[in-house]
Amino acid sequence: MRTPAQNFLTRNEQDRLIRCVQDVEAKTSGEIVPVIASISYDYPLAAHLGGLLLGILFAMGLSLLLGRDDMWVYLALFLPFYVIFNRLFMRYPRLKRPFISRAEMREEVEEAAITAFHGNGLHRTRDMTGIILYVSVYERMVQVLADKGINDKVNPEVWQEVVEMVTDGIRTGSPGQALCKGVERCGELITHHFPVKHDDTDELPNLVVEGEPR
């Protein structure tokens, strides 16, 4: 079964994005890696809150329907309802969204992007010139991080422009085109400081989808 990350871009869009990365990297010693993740965190608290709320409501409703107001009867009904709904929320992450704040999602996406940055070796490039363009499908959020070599020359605040560019494209239903534009903009921001070298090599994958490099 394909994951949301694997369904995020069509095969043609993936191939086009890879070519876009290759074209940009032909002009710069920077390494740009788009990473598509299905979800940045499993949000267990949201599943707990959802199970708790629905467990209470269903237990109360069934207690009233049975004409029983005994606390022990209510608890006996609440516990199985809680377990059922908790597992339902864990199985279908989409149900958790009403119980997750934007601030929490933003924090988890930032943390997951940092983990992906290191997990995919962007901190190990020769000149510390790795850039990750991280997309988390569930949260519908984008994060851009650059290594120290780039941040010493380029103001890290400029990456927000790339984030907004890609986010807007995803929102309007053009994720592949938006990611290509984001990669090209990253290239424009770093090429002046980090032009391609005569012995430059492609050190990292040009696209990572749910842990699968391409």
Score class of each variant (00 low, 15 high):
M1S: 13
R2N: 14
T3V: 10
A5K: 00
A5T: 04
L9I: 07
D15G: 12
V21R: 08
Q22W: 08
D23W: 02
E25G: 05
A26R: 15
A26G: 09
T28H: 01
S29R: 10
V33P: 01
A37W: 03
S38P: 07
I39Q: 14
S40K: 08
S40A: 15
D42E: 13
L45H: 03
A46N: 03
G51P: 02
L52Q: 02
L53H: 03
L53C: 11
L57Y: 04
L57G: 10
A59N: 02
L62Y: 03
L64A: 12
L65F: 14
D69I: 11
M71V: 12
M71F: 14
W72P: 07
W72K: 08
V73E: 07
Y74H: 11
L75S: 10
L77Q: 08
F78K: 01
Y82L: 09
Y82N: 09
V83N: 07
L88E: 04
L88Y: 06
M90V: 01
K96G: 05
I100H: 03
A103H: 03
E104Q: 12
E107D: 13
E108R: 13
E111V: 03
H118F: 08
H118Y: 08
N120T: 06
G121V: 06
T125M: 06
M128T: 09
M128H: 11
I131G: 02
I132K: 02
I132N: 07
I132M: 07
L133D: 02
Y134D: 00
Y134C: 05
E139N: 07
L145D: 00
A146V: 08
K148W: 01
G149L: 04
I150R: 02
I150K: 03
I150A: 03
P156F: 00
P156R: 09
M165E: 15
D168M: 14
D168R: 14
D168L: 14
G169D: 12
I170W: 05
R171D: 14
T172P: 04
T172I: 14
L179A: 05
C180Q: 15
K181R: 15
E184R: 12
I190F: 01
I190S: 10
V196S: 11
V196C: 11
D199V: 08
D200I: 07
P205H: 08
P205D: 10
P205I: 09
N206P: 00
V209Y: 02
